[in-house]
Nucleic acid binder design. Structure first.
Lengths: 227, 227
DNA sequence: CGGGGGCTTGAGGCCACTCAACGATAGTGG
DNA sequence: CCACTATCGTTGAGTGGCCTCAAGCCCCCG
């Protein structure tokens, strides 16, 4: 099976190379594969972190909840992504499968042991954490200062970059998920998408409204202000 | 500008211990101290990262700008904080001194060299990056899902925890900074503070409205919903 | 004492939210 | 195969929280 890694660099039959682990240098590192049904929890906030996960197929959402049910999704994890990397030993998000999702599990303890002796692995852990940080930093700007159309435009461009197989993208997540990722009401997400559809920026493929074709990436990019 | 270039040892024997560097194990690591005037840029977004900084006195703000001037402050750096740690080699924020601020500068390259050979330093780099990530994750929840009063309450509690010397705290930052940190208009911040003042939750010391006394931390904590 | 920067307060407007109804789609069991 | 249902998505009406614009106040500092 082939998976796409997050940087889109190279396809790798051994997915652990993303962490800098190769079967030659670390023959002892093993992993198992599990399938999670739609909506199934993978781990919960404040739980101790047993495993690190890599998405093989499907998608997952990581979120925080307020006591009254308000939810903020911090990230979506798509095919190739690695998540659950908590150096504190405790998960800071609850993570669920958005749709039926196949994951590879790696024991965290194993990973840490390898990192202790192998500086390359250690560097990769840091690099991945930094990349998560960078995403969060950009998302703070979006959540704090962007309008609803700018948020949706940014979202579509992000997804376009991350899950494009063909020129039509099949969004795995629901409108509610998009809304909770963008800090909007789900009706607002609908309305913006409708407006973009009416303006000829995007199209829905017949049937599923989660399959979207971007017709005018440039106009979309103009909606998402730079700097 | 005022510059002193010294070794870490002679200036402050323990200043680098936050990074896991001690003068015994790494006698060669040197640092210099600079004073930045109010509003002075320390580094800019997309600039290459030459140094890592530690706040000795004062405060700094790290932010991103949109082309039309909208600003999102990602973090404030107070006395003791280390910032500018960019593993990518490029700064992702612009950082300025909020008030007159004294900083210790450490060459990034030196730090990386030490990290390469000393796994303890390497672990500390990861731990600090993780701690930044955790802050950003919590801030996403605030920016995406909290009301204006909840945001201000959370802000006051955060500052109370981070810069309390006495029971009155001297906020170094302006209302505009608070607003841009919380994703609000500066007038909204004012209004919430006024309301809290009227409700007897906090008090302004005579004169400066940036010196605040928290009278009722419990009521403040109730405004910031848990979970 | 005058000027300027920062803070506060008010009036009014708008963007996004809530509430609500309806439509579409997929899954299920008879 | 087709009701039946649950779930997801869309659209409309109306509201409200926060924003914008504007004026005035206070303090610091030259």
């Amino acid at each position: 099976m082939f998976v796409r890694n997050t940087t889109g660099r190279s396809l790798c039959p051994n997915s652990l190379t993303d962490l800098g682990i190769t079967s030659e240098s670390n023959p002892g590192v093993s992993s198992s594969v599990l399938i999670y049904k739609k909506g199934k929890a993978i781990f919960s906030e404040k739980e101790s972190a047993e495993y690190v996960y890599q998405v093989i197929r499907g998608a997952a959402r990581s979120y925080k909840l307020l006591s009254d049910g308000r939810r903020q999704i911090g990230a979506f994890h798509l095919a190739g992504d690695i998540f659950g990397l908590e150096n504190s030993g405790t998960h800071r998000f609850t993570t669920q499968a958005v749709v039926e999702t196949t994951l590879r599990l790696i024991r965290r303890q194993t990973l840490e042991m390898v990192a202790e002796t192998d500086p390359a692995v250690s560097r990769n852990l840091l690099r991945m954490t930094t990349s998560n940080l960078e995403h969060a930093e950009n998302h703070m700007l979006l959540l704090g200062r962007k309008s609803s159309s700018e948020r949706v435009a940014a979202f579509l461009l992000e997804m376009d970059k991350r899950l494009t197989a063909t020129n039509s993208m099949a969004l795995p997540m629901y409108r509610r998920d998009i809304a909770d990722y963008l800090g909007l009401a789900l009706e607002t997400v609908c309305r913006v998408l409708s407006r973009l559809h009416g303006a000829g920026v995007l199209d829905f493929t017949a049937g599923s409204h989660r399959e979207i074709v971007l017709l005018d990436r440039e106009r979309l990019a103009n909606l998402d202000p730079p700097d």
